[in-house]
Amino acid sequence: MVDMKYVAPSTIDEAVGAILAANGTGRILAGGTDLLVQMRLGTAKPGVIVDVKNIPEMMRIEETAGGFRIGAAVSGAIIGEHPALGKAWPGVVEAINLIGSKQIQGRASAGGNLCNASPAADSVPALVAAAATVTIQGPKGRREIPVETLHAGPGRTTLQPGEIVVGFTLPARPLGSGDAYLRLIPRTEMDIAVVGCGVSLIVANGTCTAARVGLGAVAPTVLLVEAAGKALIGSRLDDKALEAAAAACRAACKPIDDKRGTVQYRTKIAGVLLKRAAAIAAERAGAR
C-alpha cells in the first residue's frame, strides 16, 4: 500500500528532473503496455510515474536529410501509417507493427519496447540491423549510442540514473537497399518471439555491398551478428552465402531452454529465419 504519484511533463528537462527526484522509484510511462502489466502483476511498484506522451519531441517522426528521427514514445499505429518511413525501412516498420494486436499498437512504442529490455522484443533486431542510433538525455545532457549497446541483460539497460531515451535515428537509404524482420511464434499472433531476426542489405548490381543482422530471443540481449553480415557482404546472396550467414547466426546463439523453446530449436530457427529474412530483404532491395 504505497502512494503513487503521476506526472506528465511537457519537456524532456522536466521529465529528467522528475525521474531524478524520484530517487530510483521513478518509471517512464510511454504506451504502458509493459509497465501497466508489470504493475498489475506486482513486479513493478513505481513511486512516481513520468508520462512522456506530452513531450512533443518524443511524439513525432521527422525526416532528416534522407534519414528519420522517430520519437521514442510514438505508437506503433502512427509509425505504421507513415508513408515515407514504410518505404525506406519496411523491415523496421513491420517489426514494430508485429508488437501485440491492434489495441496494443495504438499505444505501444519502440522506445518502450527497447527500454523494457526483453531479449525477445520484436522491434529491436530490426533496429539493430538498420544501424539505428538512440538519442539519450539525462542529467549530464545528451548522448547518442548504437541501439545494440542499450541492452545489458534481460530487463536491464545501460541507461544511467535519470536518463531517458528521446528517440531513434535511422540513416538515409541508398538505392538498392532493403530490410526485413521475421519472428517465429508457435501461434499466428499474440505471442512472444521464440526467435526474431532482422536483416538489412544494400545490393549493387546483384552483389551485396552492406549487410547487418540482428537476432532476438537467442541470448540475454538482442545480438548484432557481425559474422553473418560479413558472410553476406561481397556475395550475390546465393545459397552458399546464405548458409554461411545462417551458420554464423547459429553460432552466435546462446539461448536457454524454457517454456517458449529449447536450445536446439532456437538455434536451428535462427538459421532458418536468417535465410528467409535475407531473401525478403534482397527482394525489397531489388524492387527499389
Binding site: L184, Q264, Y265
Partner: peptide, 8 residues
C-alpha cells in the same frame, strides 16, 4: 506436437 517437439 508443439514446434520444438515436432522439430526435434
Amino acid at each position: 506436437m508443439s514446434p520444438p517437439r515436432l522439430s526435434a
